[in-house]
Every structure is written in structure tokens, then in C-alpha cells.
């Protein structure tokens, strides 16, 4: 395996009496996709929120590009190039694609004494990135987000992260509210951006979405890492058993242990 771009070493995190993560380590190689799977409450969200700078771990280290880093806030993480796409928190429905794409980082040019939005550049850039990511249903960046499908929204978030120079993209349940067809498209986008050198971590409940794109699969169970598999070495029934029970003992013998 190549040297990892982003690495979490021995991370523990406790919320009150709940041990959300217990000595978990993951390593994301450059240009690869890591899928984080596990049941509800397994600790997936806590782990990615630590990598996104939302939570700070109680113990453990985070390494990024061969350096130990401290991710004190989402802004700090973003500045390093770690971008998180939250499904429900990414876009403003009442605004156009172009205005969303650049929200908080709008390009401007000076006209006399005032600094004026460079709307032409906003539209041009947003449209070219949407084309590049392979989304054909949108030809204009003028459209309001509320008129778009869930898959199109994901595509815009991913394109935006690409444009702003993300090195690592973390996707929180990117396919959970999508139709089968749309989920497939979003998986294509993920494969696409990793082919361009981006590294991605994504969380999902749906194992059938994992196998086509993940290079590494990490299984969490009650805050512990119970399995790690490279592409092609994973036996679906083993992973399923790990997710549900945290071990690979067949169900009929599990009671005897």
C-alpha cells in the first residue's frame, strides 16, 4: 500500500458515558476511496467528524501529508484540503447553482470604487465543472437548487469541493436518500474524482454501494474497528456478519461462545 495521505492513529473519543470510538486507526492512501461501514451507533459519524475538525479526539493522532496535524475546526480542516460534504447541510435551496457553488468564496472584480461579483466567471466555472464531473442533466448554473434532484445536488457539492482544491473529500451517506439510478451516478462521480487523484472517504449503510468503488473497506462495530479489507479481498457475507455482530462466527455457533 502506498504511503497514506490521511491517517488517524489510535483514536478514542468519549461522549459522557458513551465510548464512541475505541483505539481506532484508519489510513487513506492517496487517490483511493475508503468506505466506512457499520451499523447505527458504530462510530462512523464520530470518526469522520473528527477528520472534518468538528470534534476533537480524546486521544490519538491525525497525520496528513506526513505531518501530525491538529484539526481544531472545520475551517482548519478545509484549509488543509479536507472537505466534508454533508448531505443535508451542503446547499442553500433558494439560491442558484452558481451562487451556491461560490458561496463564501465569491470571485469579484473591481468596477470603479466597488468590488462587483464576477457572475460571468461564476457561471462559466460552475458549468464547466458540472460538465467535467459528467453531469449532463444540468446545462445552466442559473437553476435554483430546490429544483434539482438529490443526485444533482451531490454532484454540485462534489464539483465544488474539487474546484476549491480538496485533497480529501469526506462524504457522509452520499447515497442514502437517492434512487438506485441516482445513487449509481453519484458512485460514478466518486470514482471519477478519485481517478483524478482526489482521495475520498465515504460512509454508507448500503453495502452494494461499497464494492464497486471502495479500495479499502473499514468495518466499525460499537466504536471498535473489527475489520479492514482491500478491494477484492472482501467476502460480502463476512463483512455483513462483522457489521451486525462484530465477529465472523456463524450465527448458529455465536450463542455458544
Amino acid at each position: 500500500m502506498a504511503t497514506p495521505l490521511l491517517e488517524a492513529r489510535d483514536i478514542s473519543k468519549r461522549f459522557g458515558r458513551l465510548q464512541a470510538l475505541h483505539h481506532v486507526s484508519i489510513a487513506l492512501p492517496r487517490g483511493q476511496t475508503l468506505a466506512l461501514v457499520g451499523d447505527n451507533g458504530a462510530g462512523k459519524s464520530t470518526l469522520i467528524k473528527i477528520l472534518a475538525g468538528v470534534h476533537q479526539p480524546d486521544s490519538g493522532e491525525i497525520w496528513f501529508e506526513h505531518r501530525r496535524v491538529h484539526l481544531g475546526s472545520p475551517t482548519q480542516a478545509r484549509r488543509l484540503g479536507i472537505e466534508t460534504v454533508y448531505q443535508d447541510l451542503a446547499l442553500v435551496e433558494s439560491m442558484s447553482i452558481a451562487r451556491n457553488f461560490f458561496l463564501g468564496a465569491e470571485p469579484a472584480r473591481r468596477v470603479g470604487p466597488v468590488s462587483v461579483l464576477d457572475t460571468a466567471k461564476m457561471h462559466r466555472t460552475a458549468e464547466s465543472y458540472l460538465r467535467e464531473i459528467g453531469i449532463t442533466s444540468l446545462t445552466t448554473a442559473e437553476k435554483e437548487i430546490r429544483l434539482l434532484s438529490g443526485g444533482e445536488r451531490q454532484a454540485i457539492s462534489i464539483a465544488r469541493a474539487m474546484y476549491f482544491g480538496a485533497k480529501v473529500m469526506i462524504l457522509d451517506e452520499p447515497t442514502s436518500q437517492l434512487s438506485i439510478k441516482e445513487a449509481r451516478k453519484v458512485l460514478d462521480y466518486i470514482r471519477d474524482v478519485t481517478a483524478r487523484g482526489l482521495s475520498t472517504i465515504f460512509i454508507t449503510h448500503n453495502l452494494s454501494h461499497v464494492y464497486p468503488v471502495a479500495d479499502v473497506i473499514v468495518v466499525l462495530y460499537h466504536g471498535r474497528k473489527v475489520g479492514e479489507f482491500l478491494k477484492g479481498t472482501a467476502d460480502p457475507s463476512v463483512i455483513e456478519s462483522l457489521i451486525v455482530k462484530g465477529d465472523t462466527e456463524p450465527a448458529d455457533r455465536a450463542g455458544g461462545n
Binding site: L89, A90, L91, V92, E93, S94, M95, R99, F102, L103, G104, E106, A108, V114, S115, V116, L117, T119
Partner: peptide, 18 residues
């Protein structure tokens, strides 16, 4: 026409996202 205007729309459209 300004960046600030875009922030106004974002703030009112979905405060937490903005």
C-alpha cells in the same frame, strides 16, 4: 452584485449551511 449580497441570500436561505 456584491459578495455581501450573496452572503445575505445564503444567510436567509439556510443559515446553518451558510
Amino acid at each position: 452584485k456584491t459578495r455581501y449580497g450573496n452572503w445575505v441570500y445564503g444567510t436567509g436561505g439556510k443559515t446553518e449551511a451558510a
